[in-house]
Simulated assay, not measured.
Amino acid sequence: MKSKMNLEAIPKVDRISKAEFLREYVQPQKPVVIKRLIDDWPAYKKWDLDYVNKMAGDRTVPLYDDRPISSKYKFNEAHAQMKMSQYIELLKKGPSNYRIFLYNLLKEVPAFQEDFKFPDVGLRFLKQLPMLFFGGENSRVFMHYDIDYANILHFHFHGKKQCILFPPSESKHLYKVPHALIAREDIDFNDPDFEKFPVLKKARGYITELEHGEALYMPEGYWHHMTYLTAGFSMSLRATPRTLTNFSKAVYNLIFMRHFDNYMRKLRGQKWIDYKNEQAVKRTHKKNDISL
C-alpha cells in the first residue's frame, strides 16, 4: 500500500471487548479495524453483489459519478439512475466511476434487515435504518467529513476498499472548502501534487484496506477518502457525537450551512463554487504562513 502522504496504518484486531474498544479507541478518538466483529451476522456470509441483485435487482437506484461539484446540482443530488440489476451488471464488466451514495436499501427491501444487528460496543447508535454505499472498481469518494459528526462503524462487503482518514485537527492542512464538508476535489490523495498543494506535506493521517466483513471505526468529525479497489459495497452504522461541541457543529451544518450553500449556488451559480475553491487555497496557505 503506497502513498506519498504521511499516513499511518490503521491497526487491525480480530476481536475486541466493549471496554477495550471504548478505552483504546472511542475515548481517545482513534480509528481501528475490527476483522471479525460481524462474523455472526447472516450478512457476513450472504451479502455480495449477486445476493443484492437477487433481492433488489428491480429497484431503481440513484447514481453518482466523479464529476466536480457544480451549481447545477443541489447538496447530495444524484447524477443519474438505473435499475440495480443494470448497475450490478455494469460493475461486473470492469472499472466504473458510478457509485451509490447514502442509499436506504434496507427500507426498500425489508428482508435485508434480518441480516444484521447493532453491535454491543458501547456506542449510542442512531436506530434509523443504516445506509449502503456501492462503488465500481477504481471509483473514488472525495475527501470529506460527515455533516452530523457521527461516530461511524463502516462495514465493507464484496472485495476490497482503500480508506484514508484524517482527524479533525488536520483540517488546516487539507485545503478545506469553506461553507462545505469537503477538501478541494482536484486533490488526488493517492498521488498529491505537492507543488500546487504544498501544505498537504504537513498532514498526518491514517490508511487501511478493508476486506469483506471487516468493520472500520471512524471517530466523529474524521475526514475520509474512499477508493474501491474492486467493485463492492459498504454499510455504515452511525452513533451520536460524544461532545456538546461536535453536537453543536452538527446542528449548525444541518440547519444553516447546507441551506446557505444551496442558496448561494442558486444565487451566484458557478461563481460561488469557484470562489470557494479559491478561498480553500488562500485560507490554507494563510494559516500555514505560505505566501501566495
Score class of each variant (00 low, 15 high):
Glu114Tyr: 03
Gln128Asn: 11
Asn277Glu: 13
Phe189Pro: 01
Gly57Ile: 05
Ala180Tyr: 10
Asn138Gly: 00
Ile207Glu: 12
Gln279Ile: 00
Phe194Trp: 05
Asp274Asn: 15
Arg258Pro: 00
Thr60Leu: 08
Met1Leu: 10
Tyr51Gly: 01
Asp146His: 03
Gly221Thr: 10
Met1Phe: 06
Val61Ile: 15
Met1Tyr: 04
Pro167Ala: 04
Ala239Tyr: 04
Ser96Pro: 04
Tyr263Gly: 09
Ile187Asn: 00
Met84Lys: 02
Ile69Met: 05
Trp223Tyr: 11
Val121Cys: 02
His156Asp: 00
Asp289Arg: 11
Lys2Ala: 12
Asn97His: 10
Glu195Val: 11
Ile164Val: 12
Lys92Thr: 05
Arg23Asn: 05
Pro192Thr: 04
Leu132Glu: 01
Pro119Ile: 11
Lys196Arg: 11
Tyr51Arg: 09
Ile100Asn: 12
Gln270Gly: 05
Lys74Asn: 11
Lys286Ile: 07
Phe133Ala: 03
Gln113Leu: 11
Phe256Gln: 07
Asn53Trp: 03
Val251His: 03
Lys2Trp: 04
Leu153Trp: 01
Arg124Gln: 13
Lys83Asn: 01
Leu102Arg: 15
Ser169Val: 09
Met55Arg: 13
Pro241His: 09
Phe101Ser: 14
Val251Asn: 03
Arg15Ser: 11
Tyr275Trp: 08
Arg124Asn: 14
Asn253Lys: 04
Leu49Ser: 08
Leu244Thr: 12
Asp48Lys: 14
Val109Asn: 10
Gln81Asp: 12
His259Pro: 02
Arg184Trp: 00
Gln113Cys: 12
Ala231Ser: 15
Glu170Trp: 01
Met84Pro: 01
Val281Arg: 09
Pro28Lys: 01
Met226Leu: 14
Leu126Ser: 05
Tyr98Arg: 15
Arg59Asn: 07
Tyr103Cys: 09
Gly57Tyr: 04
Phe21Ile: 06
Leu132Ile: 11
Ala43Thr: 09
Val199Arg: 03
Leu237His: 07
Lys4Asp: 09
Val141Leu: 08
Phe189Cys: 03
Ser248Tyr: 11
Phe194Ser: 10
Lys286Trp: 01
Glu185Gly: 07
Asp188Lys: 08
Glu20Gly: 00
Asp146Ser: 02
Leu7Glu: 10
Met1Gln: 10
Phe112Lys: 10
Glu211Leu: 07
Gly135His: 05
Gly205Leu: 04
Pro192Gln: 02
His224Asp: 04
Arg59Leu: 12
Pro11Cys: 05
Leu49Asn: 08
Pro62Trp: 03
Arg99Gln: 10
Gly159Arg: 08
Gly221Asn: 07
His173Trp: 14
Lys12Gly: 09
Leu102Lys: 15
His259Leu: 10
Leu165Gln: 08
Asp289Tyr: 11
Gly122Met: 00
Ala150Gln: 08
Ala80Ile: 02
Tyr64Lys: 06
Leu174Pro: 00
Ser234His: 07
Leu37Trp: 09
Leu132His: 01
Asp191Gly: 07
Lys161Thr: 07
Phe256Tyr: 13
Ala250Asp: 13
Lys54Ile: 12
Lys35Trp: 02
Glu77Ile: 00
His259Thr: 05
Gly159His: 05
Ala203Gly: 11
Val109His: 08
Ala43Met: 07
Glu89Gly: 14
Asp261Ala: 14
His212Gly: 05
Lys107Thr: 14
Ala150Cys: 09
Leu153Arg: 00
Tyr175Arg: 07
Pro62Ala: 02
Leu165Lys: 03
Arg23Met: 04
Ala43Leu: 06
Ala180Gly: 11
Asp40His: 10
Ile273Ser: 06
Phe125Gln: 06
Tyr44Thr: 05
His225Asp: 15
Ser70Cys: 06
